[in-house]
């Protein structure tokens, strides 16, 4: 066997220097796709999104993309069976969206292209249900005796 000193020692280059450069294959394509989606949103109002988990990205590509897009003014936290974070990027109209499950593990990572992310909008069903609920509470607790309640369950 060779002496300990004979074993070559390899110094890992920093991630930024080697890995980031070598693996940054699809980032340019993602950026131009995002630009196309932004233009479409402006001209036709059509929303878009890029699913970042279905792309063959290297280990550091997500971080690089995140740094490239920067951060904007809005930071939204949704608590729906696990946390979701929707952060505006420095590019208006691009929302960096991460959905996590109840255990905090990531479910989906995408960049949404929209004026307001769709998941924030309240659905009609929920509006109706909310109105019904309020009327029920109002009639049960605050209505004057003799008055007919407006809502029913």
């Amino acid at each position: 066997m060779s002496a300990l000193g004979d074993i070559p020692i390899h110094v890992e280059p920093s991630a930024e220097k080697s890995v980031g450069r070598e693996f940054g294959v699809g980032l340019g394509a993602i950026l131009s796709e995002l630009a196309t989606l932004l233009e479409a949103l402006r001209s036709t109002g059509e929303e878009g999104a890029i699913d970042l988990r279905s792309l063959p990205l290297g280990p550091n590509d997500l971080d690089r993309l995140r740094r490239l897009l920067g951060s904007g003014e809005v930071d939204i936290r949704i608590d729906a069976n696990g946390e979701s974070r929707i952060r505006e990027t420095a590019v208006s109209g691009l929302w960096w969206t991460e959905h996590r499950n109840a255990a905090g593990e990531p479910l989906a990572v995408l960049i949404e292209v929209a004026r307001v992310p769709n998941i924030l909008l309240t659905a009609d069903d929920d509006l109706a249900r909310g109105a019904v609920r309020l009327r029920t509470v109002a009639s049960a607790q605050f209505s004057a005796p003799g008055e007919t309640p407006h809502g029913t369950t």
């Binding site: 699913d51 988990r53 279905s54 949704i78 729906a80 069976n81 696990g82 979701s84 959905h99 479910l107 989906a108 995408l110 769709n118 998941i119 659905a123 069903d125 929920d126």
Partner: peptide, 16 residues
């Protein structure tokens, strides 16, 4: 009692 948003979230993950 599964909310609409958590269901949409779940479907987003599924679509992905």
């Amino acid at each position: 009692g599964v909310s609409r948003r958590s269901f949409i979230k779940y479907c987003t993950a599924m679509a992905s």
